[in-house]
Design a binder for these strands. Structure first.
Lengths: 236, 236
DNA sequence: GGCGATTCAAAGGTAGCATCTTTACATTCG
DNA sequence: CGAATGTAAAGATGCTACCTTTGAATCGCC
């Protein structure tokens, strides 16, 4: 799952991507109510493109379970419970839209659920190189944090957490790296972070790294939980 | 996310669904290597359908990040790390294929991560009715478990866990109900379950239910962790 | 041998037509 | 008057033919 780009696909804007974006956002924001109908013909006129393009878009939205299409009826907007909420695009749209705060909270809770086990997994499965990098990143975090270089701190923090997910050896966890990235980034932008990272947080990162380096899953899990306690609190 | 059907869409087999199934399975199983190429023309000949249908299929597979298409090159199979592994269809394909055991383990680990927090969430956010139902389901589990009626036990167990996820109030959690359903079902089919559910397990279900009914998030989380400890062990 | 121009294969996009389903409406019969 | 049945139309599904755009690979020049 890749938030920024469609996997390997070249960034080259294909024609329909903007249509998907627009419709996806409308649906996710609630502007297009569940049960609401669209027709290919209508969309064709609205976006001034051929039917093929609209059809392609519909297939994609359908595959995200945002809509379904039925003969003689048209394209019907699905209720939120059907949406593939783990699809990177839907996550992005929800974070951009009015439901940002809500989505943010959900994702943070998901992080709190997953990251401790991911850390434990990393302590078990990480390669030697990954262990070394984790320790190194934690050190960098301290340096940058104490120096108050927040932007660089954020970048390294993202790298730290993404590496843990990857090293966990569980692809369901590593697929969430975009989620974690987005949440960390949003947390800073939204001013939910202290100006200077707290000593507590720096120490926790180091402790997690040490546990992973020392192949101690239980410690890694516990320390990660400590680390997340702060986060949890800020959102609740 | 719905494993069995595409949301509200009628079961009516649209033409391309079987093509998607076949190609999706080939990719997920590794039969079609990452970097491997397909062409629309080739697929057209292979499946004896028009270009339109193939294009629709490609859009869908592309939207799952299983492939990407490039002009002058064709349709290229993506590496596993790009796949939308939370897409219900991909989960299903992986569970059907040769990587079943591996996928099973990942999903179980995911359950262990998510369900405790979901239980805590349910203790906080469930409606009165949901709380009553949870308690009732736990009771049924005891009755069915002690009577050795395994099929019915499984059905109720699935209902129990799905309700927790739903009641958690976190849509990222409730979207995982298919995953949990599939894991529970597979666990029974694969003979990972004791013939008669253990007293320990029955008590844990009751304890979780009681904690939710009594609005005690911490207890719900702890009890759910106890419940999952057994599961965790069986898979590791 | 390296670098720019050319070629061309394959996807992207358009257009129009035929078909199939399902809904909505009208008609008929009890 | 109400239920069953027939019918028309709306709109998705599917096919074919044709043009455009892109970018990989080859060719040719320096």
């Amino acid at each position: 799952m890749v938030l920024s780009s469609q996997g390997q696909a070249p960034a080259a804007a294909v024609k329909y991507s903007s249509i998907i974006e627009e419709l996806g956002r409308s649906i996710v924001s609630g502007e297009l109510q569940p049960g609401g109908r669209l027709t290919i013909e209508g969309l064709q006129a609205r976006f001034k493109v051929s039917r093929t393009v609209i059809r392609d878009c519909m297939r994609i939205l359908e595959s995200m379970n945002l809509v379904f299409s039925k003969r003689r009826v048209g394209i019907v907007v699905q209720a939120p419970r059907h949406w593939n909420v783990y699809d990177a695009r839907i996550i992005r749209w929800r974070l951009e839209g009015t439901s940002r705060a809500r989505q943010f909270k959900s994702l943070t809770e998901l992080r709190c659920a997953v990251e401790p086990l991911a850390a434990a997994g990393a302590a078990r499965n990480a390669t030697q190189e990954q262990r070394a990098v984790v320790v190194n990143l934690a050190q960098q975090l301290r340096t940058l944090g104490e120096a108050g270089r927040l932007d660089e701190f954020l970048a390294v923090d993202i790298e730290f957490h993404a590496l843990l997910l990857l090293a966990s050896g569980n692809e369901m966890f590593s697929a969430l790296d975009d989620v974690v990235t987005e949440v960390l980034r949003g947390r800073t932008t939204q001013g939910l972070m202290p100006r200077t990272p707290r000593e507590y947080s720096l120490a926790s990162h180091e402790a997690v790294a040490a546990a992973i380096a020392g192949s101690d899953p239980d410690a890694a899990e516990t320390e990660m939980r400590n680390l997340l306690a702060e986060v949890q609190e800020a959102v609740t």
